[in-house]
């Protein structure tokens, strides 16, 4: 599989955005293990946007959203969040505004699903405070919304990995964040749950939440998001509407295979199909 040399393209996106809030990434440099990943990356994600982040493996997608959630610190350059330096936010306040859903979660202790989801209220509670009934209400609401109410009292390690992922998403909901960052959340989910989550993300977006979704599946990303950021080999190579980007040319350029193009029957949005040979 041959890869063409990526070209840096800073196409301004067309979606209306309030770029004063949200994330403003400026000249970000990040490297780890002697490997430089991002070099002077610059991009803005406005408030209320639904952005998908795609790219081949190793392109830096996970790293990107970890930087946005402050799980990693850049070597140089800065990130502004809601017009303030991301690094200046106190932890708890940041956790009240940004929620992060990791790719995989493990739980060493066997809390129930409800207890796990309740932990999302941590940023709002003082050290000695116990959970209030309002916290319980929010947790139950989130569990219902994710369709796992029947699992509320089950041990978190006694359910399937897909259901566990739903619990983790529910946990991030009770953080009542302004932004939700998800790292390939659909990986272990069966079709029903995948649809559920995508639908939920759409709902959250219409409620005003910013969503940044790292996705493996280009079709799903194209369906739900308004804006697509394509990363390849540590560079942001494409930035625009999914419908504009999801062309066989582009996919071949960055993923190395040439798909067959198509359209989604319901929304008429661009989709790609894998050729047999």
């Amino acid at each position: 599989m041959t890869r063409n040399t990526p070209r840096t393209r800073n196409t301004p996106h067309n979606t209306p955005t309030n770029s004063k809030s949200g994330f403003v990434v400026k000249e970000l440099c990040f490297s780890y293990a002697q490997k430089t990943l991002f070099e002077r990356l610059t991009v803005s994600i406005g408030r209320g946007e639904f952005c998908s982040v795609v790219g081949p493996n190793g392109a830096g997608k996970s790293t990107f959203i970890k930087l946005l959630s402050r799980l990693l610190e850049p070597q140089s350059g800065g990130i502004l969040f809601e017009e303030q330096l991301l690094s200046s936010y106190p932890r708890r306040e940041l956790a009240q505004r940004i929620a992060y859903v990791p790719q995989e979660s493990y739980f060493a202790l066997d809390f129930t699903v409800l207890e796990t989801v309740l932990q999302g209220r941590h940023p709002y509670l003082k050290p000695l405070e116990r959970y209030h009934s309002s916290d319980f209400a929010l947790a139950r609401q989130a569990i219902d919304r994710l369709g796992i109410s029947h699992l509320a009292d089950k041990g978190i390690n006694n359910i399937s990995s897909g259901e566990r992922q739903l619990a983790v998403i529910a946990r991030s909901l009770v953080q009542q964040p302004a932004v939700i960052l998800l790292d390939e959340p659909l990986n272990h989910l069966d079709l029903l749950h995948q649809q559920q989550v995508l639908f939920l993300l759409g709902e959250l977006h219409s409620e005003g939440m910013s969503v940044v979704l790292v996705a493996h599946d280009l079709n799903q990303a194209a369906l739900v998001s308004q804006r697509m950021l394509v990363f390849a080999e540590g560079q942001l190579v494409e930035d625009g509407k999914p419908d504009d980007l999801l062309t066989p040319d582009l996919v071949q350029r960055y993923w190395g295979i040439r798909p067959i193009e198509g359209r989604h029957p319901e929304s008429n949005k661009r989709q790609i199909f894998l050729p047999l040979k």
Binding site: L71, Y100, Y106, T116, P123
Partner: peptide
Amino acid sequence: DILSTNIEAAESLGVD
């Protein structure tokens, strides 16, 4: 309690 899950998740919930 929260520390019993992955560190990233714990950090993102505001645990130092």
